[in-house]
Design a protein around this nucleic acid. Structure first.
Lengths: 340, 340
DNA sequence: AAAAATAACGAAAACGGTTTCGTGTTAATA
DNA sequence: TATTAACACGAAACCGTTTTCGTTATTTTT
């Protein structure tokens, strides 16, 4: 049953011509006579010949594969980015190899090394928590020095020069905070992550800037820094009980959802008593009760842009085009956890 | 700056030995003298030599890549399966190439063809809606006939003989329905999809069987079949208004969430007035208010099992081991949308 | 009719490895 | 001392393509 894959060699032998002739005939080369071409093409169609990708990759030193390394795939934002990458890449004839770093520095390194040895033409990645934490970017450096194009998105670092795409996190947090201030809120709690996430740092800054622009200072008591995994609802509860905010800004979706729940459990109403805004416009935000006003990160567009940047680099040998950093504008999606 | 990748040939020339000697030395072959081996290994380490994956793939006719084709990646269940596949595959030294069919038959075919020409050692996939709809499985047939191993999960078909892994959907729906019946519910609405999804058909069957086992018949008026995309909340609302159920079973997570919202909007309480159970134990279910009792599909395990089955096939040339179908037991996760 | 041009194809190198099968040295055996 | 083993290495085929550069015939030109 095992219908062995047919190769140029088989066709050549069968039709009693050389491999080169077969190859040329299938590419409709002018070098080959009409008769021969038709004969070969007919035969190839009949036996459903398809060239072997691996052989072609070896020959051209081009795999038409893109390596994507993300911290987590069970995560709405990354998932939308992957979808954007897939869409664009597939349309351009590229496959996407997805690897998960699982927020671990070691896994990130291992995956990069696996892929960097010829499997892919370039990388698109977002740093793992581990990498952001220990600030070791040597694996990225090595890869770029080998001439493998790379695009960083969302969780990026200044230490590596390469193309980058991200949203203006500071601006997003600024917009959100301003929205809350405009509502008349003055005691705005910030639910954020530990400080090593560049993304969170920027969001924190935007929060602070908005406060200052309104003549308010940053009150560290209003800021809760949570570990990014294993969320402790109790901690959030204690925090909110202690400070009694009239609004909450969360640097992600999930903290916002937890915040909302805690607030509601205390018998307070959202948004009448407490307004809440989160980051990441995911399913949770959309379907929460009330639905959660969110700063949209436009993951799918981010993915498309990243793929576009990468493929351009891959296909234009003309290396020395300056590296670009594309900064997307975040959008505030107003829902029912804020007033009007 | 472009530190060119070093090859066996470079090492050979530099150390004035043959390529074969270098190759053997790096594999610690007994054939090569201690001195030579040490010299070569040291040199290779110094210049950070790593064999080219593509070349090795071509030689062994093994890519160490697994092709995964899923309908959608912004979807909790598929995402957990991918994670399971990744975990297992990575540990075994395999990369995962993810392609999205986007629920489209055509895209599924294109992606399979892209990957089937040498890029991967085997497929793990779940059928797109389009494929389930028009029941055309020729692309799957061709691939298996070429001897490329394949594992189908969740959305499978009997028409293809290959390894399969899925949960007992009928049993899951049965358990859920029985739970509702045990609560004393008698008017259980079923929110399901169009009939071409094998998965939904089985869940419908489980629902029906439970009813019959309780001496109740299937009342078609209690069944609403919704298109799987672009959910029309209004339609759900009309339906529920018309029949006034005391419980709702949904064949997925999202319909359940919508159902809950509609019920609550009507001023009824969940679960006091209406109990609700959904399928897929995702984030929405966990964070809904009240949290949604769900039939867990164990996506991550499913992914691991699929990867395990596939890799076993790939590595054991001993083809003719009978195809296996692994059926996982679903689990009912009781939360607050049902009583106790 | 001799020289040049053209047409149609094949040989071989190359991509970067692995592996089989020599082959020339040295060391052990008869 | 002649023969054989063991050792250490290299040549070459191979995986499946692409592509350059011949090499024949045949046709055109002078």
């Amino acid at each position: 049953m095992l219908k062995q894959k047919i190769t140029l060699k088989h066709i050549a032998k069968e039709l009693d011509v050389s491999i080169s002739t077969v190859s040329k005939a299938l590419k409709n080369s002018e070098e080959i006579s009409r008769d021969t071409k038709e004969k070969i093409q007919a035969f190839a169609k009949l036996y459903n010949y398809k060239p072997n990708n691996i052989a072609i990759s070896l020959k051209n030193k081009r795999t038409k594969n893109i390596g994507v390394i993300i911290p987590d795939i069970v995560h709405h934002f990354f998932t939308t980015v992957v979808r954007g990458i897939e869409n664009y890449a597939n349309a351009k004839g590229y496959n996407v190899i997805v690897c998960l770093s699982d927020e671990s520095f070691d896994k990130e390194v291992i995956n990069m090394e696996m892929l960097a040895n010829g499997s892919i033409d370039g990388f698109i990645m977002s740093l793992s928590a581990g990498t952001e934490k220990n600030k070791d970017f040597n694996h990225l450096k090595e890869v770029t020095q080998q001439g493998i194009p790379m695009v960083l998105f969302d969780r990026i670092t200044e230490e590596i020069s390469c193309d980058k795409v991200l949203i203006d996190d500071m601006q997003g947090a600024y917009m959100a905070t301003k929205k809350l201030l405009d509502e008349g809120r003055r005691k705005i709690a910030l639910l954020t992550t530990e400080d090593f996430f560049s993304v969170s740092r920027n969001r924190n800054k935007g929060y602070e800037k908005a406060l200052r622009d309104f003549g308010l200072g940053l009150d560290e008591d209003l800021v809760l820094r949570l570990p990014f995994m294993d969320i402790d609802e109790h901690k959030i509860s204690e925090f909110l009980n202690a400070i009694h905010p009239d609004a909450i800004l969360s640097v992600n979706e999930i903290f916002g959802i937890y915040g909302m729940r805690v607030v509601q459990r205390k018998g307070m109403r959202v948004p009448e008593d407490v307004s809440i805004i989160g980051f990441t416009d995911g399913l949770l935000a959309k379907h929460a009760n009330p639905s959660l006003t969110s700063v949209a990160q436009h993951g799918e567009r981010m993915g498309e842009i990243a793929a576009n940047m990468l493929i351009e680099r891959v296909e234009n040998e003309s290396d020395e085009v300056a590296y670009r950093t594309k900064i997307l504008e975040p959008t505030l999606i107003e829902r029912d956890s804020t007033i009007n």
